[in-house]
Write a protein that binds this DNA or RNA. Structure first.
Length: 499
RNA sequence: GCGAGCGUAACUCAGUUGGUAGAGUGUCAGCUUCCCAAGCUGAAUGUCGCGGGUUCGAAUCCCGUCGCUCGCUCCA
């Protein structure tokens, strides 16, 4: 037990260290920090935004540098019917209550089913005797008049918000039996609501998208027609999505605003298994190819009986964070659920016409849905290393060079003999091609360590020898070894390493 | 949402029974430095999360609130 706690603390301290490093060096700041912060919202600083962009860029290239995948950038705001068709409106509007005694959670509309009719009658009588507000009394009378029995009125009472609160104060918890110890009913719809246009009224309600996928589904035939693609083909999109989570957790892992990198692959229904297996393997490989530790990556296949309503088969790519395994990407066989629902709700055909078979049908969809924010955190945590060099601690972020926010730093070994001028010239020559950083402050060893801390893979140093033979040292971050490179060949040398 | 813990400078933290805030690191300026941070000199930076209360006086006590962490719950 004590060991477990100690281990837990040690693991958590890694996250703590990464969080403070992230802030100190400008990767991630807390949103609205000067106002006390905003729950579960984070800002990407100068280095963070580079890392995030590099991750997204690598993903985008992995997807759209293929002949069978097209890109898309759909609007965040969509027609409200989209979310009815997707099932989000239906599945996320239930008021929920918690029993404060036994912590059980109930959907308010199902609470009635859990209580015996006799108890309902008793509760309704008791409710009636406690009411003082004349409006509530008339509400209750109306409900009773419209129902055959007190027991059948019970459900209608729960649908009246004010009566429901009064009722909850006197009924017993179906699980533990304690009386009236419930939280107030709370709606747990995960979608952020807002209004289209200046008038805030019911008919103008729209939602911030809770997933980017629907923008792809509704555009499926637009993209297919415009790009002349045939099945199988995919549509890739990167964008923000919003979920009003009950609670946020673990730094960037569970936030209310996050970025997804989604590719929906449209296939012939009979081929779904083949493509599912292909993308499952391909996506895990992507993380490895960018240097993420293979032993910290795994699949988590969803059990058949726990699949979401739209899915036939599903797996998560999980990363072993310091706080445990966590999903960084989901690969789902969504079947034809989404397109068929959109056909049903829109009244427009969403079927694909297969020229060879001369028939129209709904394609099946294999979804690869990666979290850009979560991947960011995984790449950051995975890169974090503490080493001992000459008896001193060295903190180094071992990013794959493709992901590193700064690709190279340029140092004059000392600030004299023209070394700063040569260094500035090298900096100017490299800057059009990559993000570089010039530093002439303090001992060169200190400058190396500063670059280690932000994961810069190469440090170029101008020294005395440079003055006579036009070569510089290039120091590699992980090995700390140096090679001499002729200044005119620097760009090619680096380009080769960054490829 | 519930429970527990925490919130003092950019970071890590100290602040003794309530008497208007300190250290180390970092940052900045200068010196020194011919290759792996903590040599020298100097400097800047704090609504003590926020609001209210108790008090002559609150970083310190009380209440509320916001935020972070952990556990439970949730995560179609």
């Amino acid at each position: 037990m004590r060991l477990a706690i100690a281990q837990n603390n040690a693991q958590n301290s890694v996250v703590d260290k990464v969080v403070s490093l992230a802030k100190r060096k400008g990767f991630v700041f807390q949103s609205s920090e000067i106002y006390g912060g905003l729950n579960g919202c984070w800002d990407y600083g100068p280095l963070g935004v580079e890392l995030l962009r590099n991750i997204k860029e690598e993903w985008w290239k992995a997807m759209t540098y293929r002949e069978d995948v097209e890109g898309l950038d759909a609007s965040i705001l969509m027609h409200p019917k989209v979310w009815e068709a997707s099932g989000h409106v239906e599945n996320f509007t239930d008021p929920m209550i918690d029993c404060k005694s036994c912590k059980a959670r109930f959907r308010l509309d199902t609470l009635s089913d859990l209580i015996a009719d006799k108890k309902k009658e008793k509760s309704v009588d008791e409710l009636k005797s406690t009411l003082e507000d004349t409006k509530l009394i008339s509400d209750l009378d109306l409900i009773l008049a419209n129902n055959g029995s007190k027991a059948s009125a019970f459900e209608s009472i729960l649908e009246n918000k004010e009566l429901a609160v009064k009722m909850l104060a006197i009924i017993n918890c179906p699980q533990c039996g304690n009386k009236g110890n419930f939280t107030e009913p709370r709606s747990f719809n995960l979608m952020f609501k807002t209004f289209l246009g200046p008038v805030e009224q019911e008919g103008n309600v729209i939602y911030l998208r809770p997933e980017t996928a629907q923008g792809i589904f509704v555009n499926f035939l637009n993209v297919q027609g415009a790009s002349r693609q045939k099945l199988p083909f995919g549509i890739a999109q990167i964008g923000k999505a919003f979920r009003n989570e009950i609670n946020t957790k673990n730094f960037l892992f569970r936030t209310r605003e996050f970025e997804q990198m989604e590719m929906q692959y449209f296939v012939k229904p009979a081929d779904d298994k083949k493509h599912y297996d292909y993308w499952k393997a391909t996506r895990l490989e992507w993380y490895k190819s960018l240097g993420m530790s293979p032993d910290k990556l795994r699949y988590h296949d969803h059990p058949k009986d726990k699949l979401a309503h739209y899915a036939k088969e599903a797996t998560d790519v999980e990363y072993l964070f310091p706080f445990g395994w966590g999903e960084i990407e989901g690969i789902h066989n969504r079947t034809d659920f989404d397109v068929s629902r959109h056909e049903q709700f829109s009244g427009k055909s969403m079927k694909y016409f297969d020229e060879e078979a001369k028939e129209k049908y709904f394609p099946y969809i294999i979804e690869t849905s990666a979290g850009a924010s979560r991947s960011f955190m995984a790449f950051l945590v995975d890169a974090y290393n503490e080493e001992e060099v000459n008896g001193e601690q060295r903190i180094v972020l071992k990013f794959n060079p493709k992901l590193a926010p700064i690709k190279a730093a340029i140092f004059p070994l000392v600030n004299k003999d023209g070394m700063p001028e040569i260094s500035r010239k090298i900096e100017a020559d490299l800057r059009p091609f990559m993000r570089v950083f010039f530093d002439d402050k303090g001992a060169v060893g200190r400058r190396y360590r500063r670059m280690d801390e932000v994961g810069t893979p190469f440090c170029i140093t101008v020294d005395t020898q440079t003055l006579s033979d036009q070569t510089v040292t290039v120091r590699e971050r992980d090995s700390m070894e140096q090679v001499r490179v002729e200044i005119p060949k620097l760009l090619n040398f680096l380009a080769e390493k960054l490829r």
